[in-house]
Amino acid sequence: MENGHGAVRQLRYLPAVGSAYGVETLTFAALRAMDVHQRRVQPQRPDFHVFALVGSGAGAHEADFHDYRLGEGSAVWIRPGMVHRWSDIDGCDGPLILFRPGALHGFTTAEASTPVCWQLDRQRLPLALLAADHLGHEHGAAVHTPRLASPALLSHLLAALILRALPDTPAATGATRSGGPRAEVFRVYRASVEEHFTDWHHVADYARALGYDVRTLTRATHAAAGTGAKEFLDQRILLEAKRLLAHTDVPVRSCARRLGFRDVGNFTAFFRRQVNTPPAAWRAAYSTAGARGV
């Protein structure tokens, strides 16, 4: 991993020497040992996935303006682009898996709808830890004995771990269905939103570019993410607006311009419609809460 600049550390996926397989394993203890200056407690934005299991201990984590208490059995899944920080993991133990988006296939629905943090029960936790341990051993073997390396094997073991740990939701039961027309439609829509949300604010723009009609995008998004295509797009724009307001000192007018709004009035109206508060007031309230440790 390497760091960028600014209030939020931009983390790039740079695997350890001999570990160029798109998957890397470590532990909370290893993270603490390599982070002696405790940069982990500051906001960071990885361009890779982080999946963690708390096998023992307790702590705290924050991701995109939500606080999570961690305890035995907690699972955490940070997706690329999320702004998060390990508020307090000094007492946590368990595995962490870092992986590139391409290392996990067929999880479109799970990535979109699984929460950032959830709890495994006493039956599932040992099995999930066993799956993580298996992945860790195979990763170690690949690093120390390259002839044993198999990116496909690591990818399958990673998928097995995620499947074992996913919460019991309708999304989890269909998480491995990489095929199917709606899953594919949502996959390309989500990727397009991620690429163009600062320029295209209407679902019709994506429909034209992708060759689908708006109704098809709406149905596919609702099936995968539980929300309509327009709400999905608006929430992505809103999230980025909150990130800019919370983690930078960029003026509201410049935030509007970065997010593709023609003028600050349109941006303010959009933000107020979503959170019932104008952006400047939201920023001030967030800064005050942060200063108080809320």
Rank of each mutant, 00 (worst) to 15 (best):
W118S: 04
L135T: 05
S287L: 15
I97Y: 00
A183L: 09
L125S: 02
S178H: 14
A246S: 07
L163R: 06
H196Y: 12
G211P: 15
V193P: 06
P251C: 06
P151W: 08
L239Q: 04
M1R: 09
H66M: 13
G94F: 09
A229N: 03
L104H: 06
A30P: 12
T27V: 05
E184K: 15
Y189K: 11
A175K: 02
A220Y: 00
E62Y: 12
F261T: 00
F261V: 00
L239T: 03
V214Q: 09
T114Y: 15
H201A: 03
L166M: 13
H222R: 13
R272W: 07
A191L: 12
G140H: 14
L217D: 01
R243T: 02
V275G: 02
N276R: 09
P80E: 03
V36Y: 02
P279F: 00
R39G: 13
P115A: 12
P167N: 10
T216W: 03
I162C: 06
A63L: 10
R45N: 01
H137S: 06
M34D: 02
H139C: 13
Q119N: 12
R147I: 08
T216P: 07
L98M: 04
R177L: 08
W200G: 02
L135P: 06
A207C: 05
P101C: 03
R100T: 11
D93Y: 00
A58S: 12
A223P: 01
A175D: 08
F48D: 01
A149E: 07
A220S: 06
P146V: 10
S74W: 08
P43L: 06
E194C: 07
D205M: 10
R253N: 05
T288Q: 12
T169R: 03
L245E: 00
A171G: 11
A224L: 11
Q274N: 03
V185A: 12
R124C: 12
D93A: 04
L120M: 11
A29S: 14
A63E: 04
G211S: 12
V41K: 05
P115F: 12
R85T: 00
A204H: 13
C92N: 02
R45G: 00
H105W: 10
P126M: 08
G226F: 08
E195V: 11
V185N: 04
A29Q: 14
Y206Q: 06
A284I: 07
H137Q: 11
L259G: 02
